[in-house]
């Protein structure tokens, strides 16, 4: 039928390669990516009184509660000279970024079926925009952390011991890892929820459970000391590695080694690529099943 050597721009067909991630196409839609980010940022707190202040309030209050319960009541040690409030704030700030990326991307398909059902653009733009939007939020929360950090380091004798280590130059890598991890998991979950909604229920409390297994409100060393039999579960959780590294970089406490970092990088990249493959496979025809 088409024996003439015609050069078609592209073909729409049922057969799909396993990996056909079209980076060029995503690049062509970069304007859309930034417009989505802009939309997400400016519309979240429209018609709220406190507006972006909510970005501050949530981690602060959680840290206060954690400090009261885990440190003052259950007396979990946070390391020599490290104020437990700052310890918790560090954990929560980094955990929040991962969590927001995961939950924000995990219902990509369900949330956007209105748009996805009407118009084509590389679907991966939407979860990417979520991750970038959350970066803003993370930035603001990081500022809060830095503010309290300065307070404790210079104006309070409680935290005279906190000091950043040289490894802090790798902090951006840590942030990228958190994003990749959240995005990868989120894309896997969002792809699967198009057909089986069960996962959506799972995510809600799964994330909650995962927080307890990610050394957010306790140091890994203390967990190892108290529950040595279970410690592998926490130790090999890539988020534990990231959060411990975050605290090591900023405050000098925590379990940090190059080997563990490489481990976290490998896991994150694998999950991200896996997510991308599954997501790409789903985006072709999810509209029929959702």
């Amino acid at each position: 039928m088409s024996t003439k050597n015609e050069n078609w721009l592209y073909t729409i067909s049922a057969n799909q390669k396993l990996i056909n991630f079209n980076l060029k196409e995503v690049w062509n839609y970069r304007d859309l990516l930034f417009l989505f980010v802009k939309r997400n940022v400016i519309t979240v707190y429209k018609q709220t009184v406190l507006g972006p202040l909510w970005y501050f309030i949530q981690p602060l209050f959680t840290s206060v509660i954690f400090t009261l319960i885990f440190n003052n009541m259950a007396s979990i040690p946070t390391g020599d000279g490290v104020p437990s409030f700052l310890f918790n704030l560090a954990g929560i700030t980094s955990w929040n970024y991962f969590k927001e990326c995961l939950t924000g991307t995990s219902d990509t398909f369900a949330q956007n079926q209105g748009i996805f059902g009407k118009v084509y653009f590389p679907r991966v733009i939407v979860p990417l925009s979520t991750v970038i939007t959350n970066l803003f939020k993370f930035g603001i929360q990081l500022l809060v952390f830095v503010g309290f950090y300065i307070y404790y380091a210079f104006f309070s004798d409680q935290g005279s011991n906190v000091a950043p280590t040289k490894a802090i130059i790798f902090l951006p890598i840590l942030v990228i890892l958190m994003g990749l991890l959240g995005l990868g998991l989120g894309m896997i979950i969002s792809s699967m929820t198009t057909k089986y909604r069960d996962l959506k229920v799972l995510v809600a409390f799964g994330v909650q459970l995962l927080m307890y297994g990610s050394a957010v409100m306790y140091p890994l060393s203390y967990f190892k000391q108290k529950l040595p039999d279970l410690s592998w579960a926490v130790e090999y959780n890539p988020m534990t590695v990231i959060i411990e590294a975050f605290r090591y970089m900023t405050m000098g406490v925590g379990d940090y080694s190059l080997l563990k970092m490489i481990y976290a990088i490998i896991i994150s990249v694998i999950l991200f690529l896996l997510g991308l493959v599954i997501f790409n496979k789903t985006e072709k025809s999810f509209i029929d099943t959702i």
């Binding site: 088409s2 015609e6 050069n7 078609w8 721009l9 592209y10 073909t11 729409i12 067909s13 049922a14 799909q16 996805f116 059902g117 009407k118 118009v119 084509y120 072709k284 025809s285 509209i287 029929d288």
Partner: peptide, 25 residues
């Protein structure tokens, strides 16, 4: 929907030489 790449055909294929924009809504 198939032409605008919102969903894929079960069998068969569509070849095009141009950029397709769709206005389904």
């Amino acid at each position: 929907k198939i032409l605008s790449k919102v969903t894929t055909p079960t069998t068969g294929e569509i070849k095009t030489k141009g950029r397709i924009a769709s206005l389904l809504e």
